[in-house]
Amino acid sequence: MSIQLMDIVGRVSYNCDIMFRVTDIKEENGVKMVVLYGEDFRLVADAPYEDLIKVNPSERKRMSKESQSREEQSYILFRQDVELLKQKQEYEATDSYSNTSSYFQMPGRVLHIDGDSNYLKKCLTLYERVGVPVYGIHCNEKEMPNKISSLLDYYRPDILVITGHDAYSKSKGNKGDINAYRHSKHFVQTVREARKKIPHLDQLVIFAGACQSHFESLIQAGANFASSPSRVNIHALDPVYIVAKISFTPFVERINVWDVLRNTLTGEKGLGGIETKGVLRTGMPFHKPND
């Protein structure tokens, strides 16, 4: 059975542990090679054509169901966190419930720049579900450094997400060599350009990176949160859970890094960061438009 563009496949040599989407088929030195994008993980990989097998519909359905179950569990835990934050805010905004004045909240606005249009759509759906105001831009990883300045000027976000695909290649160098990574250097350059515009870590909160990205370089470049400390794969939706937590945390509070990571699908092996202020602001009174 021939493999074609956009087919869902697995790598036989890896026991088909991850579902991939075929994005390119090419020939290198007489060997047929395939470029793969992870369906649920922000991983890009090259594989020999002969090492691939199509994932049959029943197996694909099973793996998708397992992934959706993990995603739903993370969503439930996240909603519990947000509800506790809202209750705390209501208590403080109403002076321990003694003030009956109504109030309103302004969650932090997110600009999410993604190298994968399919992942971006999934993330935007989740942002909408949790109630985070967001602008989504699909942009090739290599073009991000040149476009970030104008995008920041136009959208003026509180939180910036820079993500897409990445991968570490042992054949290109050791894990400390940023040139051994497919897109880490582009993410780093993008963070640096963003910090030229807005240097303060609490005026623009940045998440950057994808699967196996060079975590240390991203943090040093100015990211508040990044992937991947242990060079593991991260789930496509992990950036959303991180920035949504920041979006709903009041600006007068500092966020414990573990509190941000605990409800992600990947955890501290794939994600990390530094102490950061929240960006939510509360105001009053609240008036309905027709009042």
Score class of each variant (00 low, 15 high):
K61M: 12
K196P: 08
R182V: 11
S213W: 01
F251V: 10
Q73A: 15
K175W: 02
L152N: 08
V55A: 15
Y168T: 08
E90A: 15
D158T: 09
G222R: 06
D202N: 14
T163P: 07
P250V: 10
G173T: 04
L151S: 02
R281Y: 02
V55L: 15
L237S: 06
K197A: 11
V252I: 15
L271E: 01
S213L: 02
M63P: 00
G270H: 05
I3F: 04
K196M: 12
V257Y: 02
I198W: 00
L280S: 04
D116A: 11
D238Q: 06
D95E: 15
D116E: 13
N256D: 13
I206T: 06
H287K: 13
Y181F: 13
V22I: 10
I148A: 08
R79Q: 14
K147G: 06
D291M: 11
K122L: 08
R11N: 01
T249R: 05
I255G: 06
L85V: 04
P107A: 10
S247A: 15
S98V: 10
V205R: 03
K88Y: 00
S213Q: 03
L36S: 10
S58T: 11
Y168H: 09
K142M: 07
S230I: 01
L151W: 08
L261T: 04
A223I: 00
S150V: 05
C139E: 14
F20S: 02
T276N: 05
M33W: 01
Y154L: 14
F215H: 13
I219H: 03
V22R: 08
S101R: 12
F78R: 08
G108V: 08
F187T: 03
M19I: 09
D46G: 08
Y127E: 06
R129T: 08
N290P: 00
D238F: 01
Y97F: 14
L84Q: 11
H186I: 07
L261D: 00
D177Y: 05
I137A: 09
P239Y: 01
D51M: 02
P48D: 03
K196Y: 00
N256A: 09
L280W: 07
V134S: 06
F248R: 13
D177T: 05
I137R: 11
N263A: 13
I25D: 11
E50K: 07
A194K: 06
L120C: 05
Q105M: 14
Q189S: 15
H235R: 15
R231H: 12
A221G: 05
F286N: 14
L218W: 00
G283Y: 07
E268W: 07
C123T: 05
E27W: 02
A180W: 02
T282M: 13
